[in-house]
């Protein structure tokens, strides 16, 4: 039992990181109907900025905030300078924009080693190395802190989307761009802010994930888990992304430990199976809205 709990906690800790990245994917999907394949690499890039700030002597939490601010600006600039012009010329066809995000993925992934080198950077462990005993299992401060951060994220997201004028406008744009523009909402600015917010959440995910050592491949695998999380929860539901992330984290850790042939080598397999099953049984995800097309 205590062993089971041990892996459950571990899974929740990893799941909170996937959830954070999945929230970033969902914010952009809701606003634009696009999957941003560069989300993970943008997060990795921001994590190097966190590392630089920390390495320069800033306390770690402050360094994470610096990285998130950098991410916000980076996301907004990418939307303004690359995504918006391509979207405009694509005339409603999503493929060119998706290709551009894949291009961004490759560009950022090869740019990072040129700037910061290929050696793994030593990165601080968020909330330190200690652990506490809970129901006979030990749970690290890192896992507890990561889960607390996730809880905080949910509250902040809810407040932004449900309680502010900006959040209302972002939800309006997500639902109907044209009607929002006619109601007086500056749609372009909302999309910029959406990309900025998403990249800031990505930076946070990177800051929580990089304790294993920071290289340019940091977010490759988490991005796949985040896609699984968003598929499971529903691509248009931030709450679904959080639940999906936790479920994916727990399922991955438990199956790696309890199903013999999976182990550490085939850890990705359950995530892919999860995507497959969800797409077959409930394509809109657990919390997603079914698209009703009226003709």
């Amino acid at each position: 039992m205590s062993e089971f709990l041990q892996f459950l906690f571990l899974g929740l800790g990893q799941g909170a990181i996937y959830a954070t990245l999945a929230v970033a994917l969902v914010i952009i999907y809701r606003a634009t109907g696009l999957l941003n394949f560069a989300q993970g690499e943008m997060a990795m890039f921001c994590t190097f900025v966190i590392w630089m700030a920390w390495d320069a002597g800033l306390p770690f939490p402050l360094a994470v905030l610096v990285g998130m601010a950098f991410g916000f600006v980076m996301g907004a600039v990418i939307q303004l300078a690359i995504i918006a012009p391509v979207t405009k010329r694509a005339h409603g066809n999503p493929l060119p924009v998706v290709m551009v995000t894949i291009g961004l993925f490759l560009a950022l992934s090869s740019l990072a080693p040129i700037i910061w080198g290929t050696d793994a950077k030593v990165f601080p462990v968020a909330f330190g190395e200690g652990s506490i005993e809970l129901f006979g299992a030990s749970i690290t401060h890192r896992v507890l802190g990561t889960l607390a951060i996730l809880g905080l994220e949910v509250v902040v997201l809810w407040l932004i989307f449900q309680r502010t004028r900006l959040g209302l406008a972002m939800r309006a744009v997500a639902s109907n761009e044209e009607s929002s523009a006619l109601a007086g909402v500056p749609v372009g600015r909302m999309l910029m802010i959406g990309w900025g917010m998403a990249a800031a959440f990505g930076a946070l995910a990177g800051g929580l994930a990089a304790y294993v050592g920071l290289t340019n491949t940091l977010m490759l695998v988490p991005l796949i888990y985040a896609f699984a999380a968003a598929t499971l929860g529903g691509f248009d539901s931030p709450g679904g992304a959080v639940v999906g992330g936790l479920v994916v984290g727990v399922v991955t850790e438990l199956s790696a430990h309890y199903i013999p042939f999976i182990g550490n080598d085939l850890k990705l397999l359950p995530a892919f199976l999860l995507i497959l099953i969800v797409l077959l049984v409930r394509p809109q995800g657990l919390f997603g809205k079914r698209q009703v097309v009226r003709v």
């Binding site: 309006a172 639902s175 109601a183």
Partner: peptide, 21 residues
Amino acid sequence: PQGRGTITDLTVEENLRIGAY
């Protein structure tokens, strides 16, 4: 606009708030 142009995912009151953006 033609075809109403309400924002269907928002509540009635939120639609009015958006109108005053």
